[in-house]
């Protein structure tokens, strides 16, 4: 099983890596795995629910309680348990990533493949649109979409969909560009021309010869996409367009609520969710950067040889 998996990213790259690059890749993978585990086992890790305000006995937690005792990271101004909300926040983050990535890969890859292969006027129009959308501030688009989808105040899934969709719109151009560039490159290769000389159908050329050879850059964009997704979700939450606190835990919203706390010297309501964002994005970006380095022979580090 491991041997089979080791042919695919990121394990394939792990085998090739060395030194600093290996360290960065391992660090990134560890952080990401840690958060995935936390998301899966959130119910067991978190002592309270993300929207819970009271103990079993009906007594309220109280607001802005300093860390310690039954609230190891304290409580928020709204009276939620900070630790539980940070833990449940991983679920939200990962759900957004999954939605955003699946949607944008599906659309972007297909468009890139077709546009790169058939060229012509469709290609030119798509390039223009992709460039225009790419230049659009993603947060502004996300805000607009979240207004559209949920009127600005969201439940768990509508909030995730709003963040996910807006990121999708921003990222389709990136997948599209990468896939188109790869398709254009591979189209020039002799084995594709060979298939053309033979009279293979476009469908056969696209899917038998180009598609699988063109997917090598996807893991890299995937990681970029994922970290951007989390940052956009947090930005939305911070501006008050995220997920309603009773519907799901979301770090950006919690930070928004902690703005006033900060001036009063209450640090625990912002430091923990903020650090969670930083760590997840850091982990994913480390993986992406390492994959990028290892995919590019010019950026790849090799061990210094020994003379036998």
């Amino acid at each position: 099983m491991l041997k089979f998996l080791s042919k695919y990213p990121p394990l394939k790259q792990l085998k090739m890596s060395f030194g600093v690059q290996r360290f960065m890749l391992i660090l990134g993978l560890s952080i990401v795995s840690f958060f995935i585990l936390v998301a899966i086992f959130a119910d067991f890790i978190a002592p309270y629910g993300f929207a819970q305000l009271q103990y079993e006995n009906g007594e309220y937690f109280g607001s802005q309680i300093a860390p310690g005792g039954s609230h190891i990271w304290g409580t928020t101004v709204g009276g939620f348990d900070v630790f539980s909300r940070v833990v449940y926040g991983t679920r939200t983050a990962i759900a957004v990533i999954v939605v955003a990535v699946i949607l944008s890969i599906l659309v972007g890859v297909l468009l890139g493949l077709l546009s790169g292969y058939f060229a012509g006027w469709l290609d030119r129009i798509l390039v223009l649109v992709a460039d225009a959308v790419y230049a659009f501030p993603s947060l502004l688009l996300a805000i607009s979409l979240s207004i559209v989808i949920s009127g600005g105040r969201s439940g768990f899934w509508s909030g995730i969909l709003a963040a996910g969709l807006s990121i999708t719109v921003i990222f389709i151009p990136q997948y599209y560009r990468a896939m188109r560039a790869e398709t254009l490159r591979i189209k020039q290769e002799a084995f594709v021309e060979s298939a053309q000389v033979l009279g293979a159908s476009s469908f056969r050329i696209l899917f038998r010869h180009i598609f699988r050879n063109a997917t090598r850059t996807l893991p890299i964009i995937f990681t970029l996409n994922a970290s951007e997704a989390i940052l956009t979700l947090a930005g939305l939450g911070f501006l008050g367009f995220g997920i309603d606190p009773t519907m799901g835990a979301e770090w950006g919203y919690d930070l928004n609520r902690s703005v006033a706390d900060v001036s009063a010297g209450i640090w625990w309501t912002s430091i923990f969710p903020g650090s969670a964002i930083v760590l997840v994005v850091l982990g994913i970006t480390l993986v992406g950067e390492s994959l990028n380095d290892l995919a590019d022979p010019r950026l790849r580090k090799r061990q210094v040889a020994e003379i036998e």
Binding site: E189, A190, F191, E193, S194, V197, L198, R208, N213
Partner: peptide, 28 residues
């Protein structure tokens, strides 16, 4: 029949040599 210049790129790297040689037959 066509023979290309660059031996490095004249075969689909994901297909075996046998599959590559069989391509013309599979098509025609």
């Amino acid at each position: 029949g066509f023979v290309f210049q660059d031996p490095a790129s004249s075969f689909n790297p994901l297909l075996s040599i046998g599959e590559c040689i069989a391509e013309p037959m599979a098509i025609h």
